[in-house]
């Protein structure tokens, strides 16, 4: 099947949509990595918790917006709790130990999600009920625009925080030089707490915004977390802008490959991209050599 022009536009749309989600997850991973020196491999489960908590809150009668806000708070608190209960007590341990802890937490959270929400898919309604838009022969569903909008607004707010507030600059300072940051009185334990809470919030927003398109299952976070991780590596691991570019790029590559290659390969593509990047440019597209 050779793609016509409109098909390519279609791939681009779906690539940008999922890519926005990868970008947000990658961004949270990179911020956490820069502050704490570890990858939070439980971040995918934060996506799941955000999405499924929103489902449950709607089921018990919360109006949509309230359910979404509460779900984001729940996931943020899960991040806070995870940091206080598992990362902070082990902060003197090696980086490898800490990363293994995050894998453990991820398995535990996925198990809990399975118990609470079962194996069947759940869904959330689209934010608006409008007809899909036609653009150059491709179909753009309105929910995709919300996802893109979330990415733009979240990234904009984050960069404003980092560039124009004293607290944001303190976070960046700690990302650049942890010891020097401590010497001026910046508390790394508090920043670590911020990183995990922030990850919960960003991941939950991602999950809530994408669920009307993809549906939500207890294990949805596994692949999303992995793809976010690949996007972070693509972008150079320590670079926030790189993470965003890496996420969008990964989404688009995946969409084009999925449209033109046998469908079973879709999830393998991210891994292939990661291996190629690690072999040819281990510091990522924007990373410093």
């Amino acid at each position: 099947m050779l793609g016509s022009e409109s098909q390519y536009v279609q791939y681009l749309f779906s690539g940008l949509t999922l890519g926005s989600i990868y970008a947000l997850i990658a961004l949270a991973l990179v911020v956490t990595f820069n502050i704490t020196g570890i990858f939070n491999l439980a971040i995918g489960e934060f996506v799941t918790i955000g999405a499924l908590a929103a489902v449950t809150l709607r089921d018990v009668g919360c109006p949509n917006v309230l359910a979404y806000i509460l779900a984001v708070i729940v996931a943020g608190l899960v991040g806070t709790l995870m940091e206080r209960a598992t990362i902070n007590p082990a902060r003197k341990a090696s980086v490898l130990t800490l990363i293994i802890i995050t894998i453990g937490v991820s398995i535990a959270l996925r198990g809990a999600a399975l118990l609470i929400w079962g194996t069947h898919p759940h869904t959330l309604p689209a934010f608006v009920h409008a007809a899909p838009l036609n653009f150059l022969g491709a179909v753009l569903i309105p929910q995709s625009l919300f996802v893109l909008g979330l990415a733009v607004v979240a990234v904009g707010l984050l960069f404003t925080f980092f560039d124009f507030t004293f607290t944001g600059k303190a976070v960046r300072a700690a990302m650049m030089n942890r010891t020097a940051a401590q010497l001026v009185g910046i508390n790394p334990a508090r920043l670590s707490l911020f990183a995990f809470t922030f990850s919960g919030v960003i991941a939950a927003l991602s999950g809530i915004f994408i669920t009307p398109i993809t549906t939500a299952t207890y294990d949805m976070g596994f692949m999303l977390g992995l793809k976010g991780f690949v996007a972070a590596i693509l972008g150079g691991v320590t670079n926030a802008t790189g993470a965003i570019i890496g996420g969008v790029l990964l989404g688009v590559i995946e969409a084009f490959a999925a449209g033109t290659l046998p469908s079973g390969l879709k999830d393998a593509i991210a891994m292939i991209v990661m291996i190629v990047v690690l072999l040819t440019r281990p510091t990522g597209i924007l990373g410093e050599r």
Partner: peptide, 15 residues
Amino acid sequence: QLFPFLSVRDNLLLG
């Protein structure tokens, strides 16, 4: 051990 990519002003203020 400065904060390399922050401005001189920010480095001083963060002190």
